[in-house]
Design a protein around this nucleic acid. Structure first.
Length: 245
RNA sequence: CGGGCCCUGGAC
């Protein structure tokens, strides 16, 4: 079963969820029984490509076969609904999971927060943060990144910068995504010089810029046609080993 | 053996 699950995971990573699904039928024919991981893997494969209906069908199928969905299964579904913008449905799944006595973990909160943030429901996201605190779930850098991104999306870049400043005091290190998120937020607001300052800061802190970092900055400087800066960034990007296309 | 964050493309 573990072998089949790993194979399915591999297919899903290559966006070949239908092939992965075929393996489910095959393993049953071979007399193996799928477990919760099997179903969660496939459901995630479907959710990633926005085929949440198919994921739901698998969810029903696994329940029919007497399998009990766990926190990963529920989190996968919450994520799926968020990805297609159905945050209300995601919240329902979240409630259903707590109703069945499963505790949402930091990842469950992260996906739901991300869904709320991306729909610009920053207020609701903040209420969920309160819930997260009440449950004594410890924050990780993903939670911070998601909230900072949500603030930027909702036009509150300064709040995001404030949250960023509070990271060290919480004992958390910003990562590349943290900086990218803020640089993106600043560039979207045409605050390019501050964005450049963050690029410097990330390097100083030993946090390597990646292709997304340069992508965001280059787009930012292309907008006002600051071509010398664009050229400089492009040079830096390719000398760092990233392809410039 | 399975779940979460940034940019661009895909896929839908």
């Amino acid at each position: 079963v573990v072998t089949y699950n790993s194979l399915m995971h591999g297919y899903c990573l290559q966006n070949q969820v239908d092939e992965a699904r075929t393996l489910l039928d095959l393993m049953v024919k071979m007399g193996y029984s799928a477990n919760v991981t099997t179903y969660s893997t496939l459901m995630n494969g479907y959710c990633k490509v926005h085929r949440v209906e198919d994921a739901l069908n698998l969810y029903r199928e696994m329940c029919d076969r007497g399998l009990v969905p766990d926190v990963v299964t529920y989190t996968t579904l919450v994520d799926g609904f968020c990805r297609i913008g159905k945050v209300e449905a995601a919240i329902e799944v979240f409630s259903e999971m707590t109703a069945t006595g499963q505790s949402p973990d930091v990842t469950t909160f992260a996906v739901l927060l991300d869904g709320l943030c991306k729909c610009k429901h920053l207020d609701k996201a903040m209420r969920l943060v309160q819930d997260l605190e009440d449950r004594k779930v410890t924050w990780d850098i993903y939670i911070y990144n998601i909230l900072m991104n949500g603030m930027c999306i909702s036009g509150k870049v300064d709040y995001a910068m404030e949250l960023f400043s509070s990271l060290e005091s919480k004992g958390l290190k910003p990562n590349t995504v943290t900086f990218n998120t803020l640089i993106n937020g600043l560039c979207k607001e045409d605050r390019r010089s501050e964005a450049l300052k963050l690029l410097g800061e990330m390097k100083d802190k030993g946090c390597s810029p990646n292709a997304a970092t340069y992508d965001v900055l280059i787009r930012g400087f292309l907008k006002p046609n600051e071509m010398s800066k664009v050229a400089e960034l492009v040079r830096e990007m390719s000398s760092s080993g990233f392809s410039v296309d």
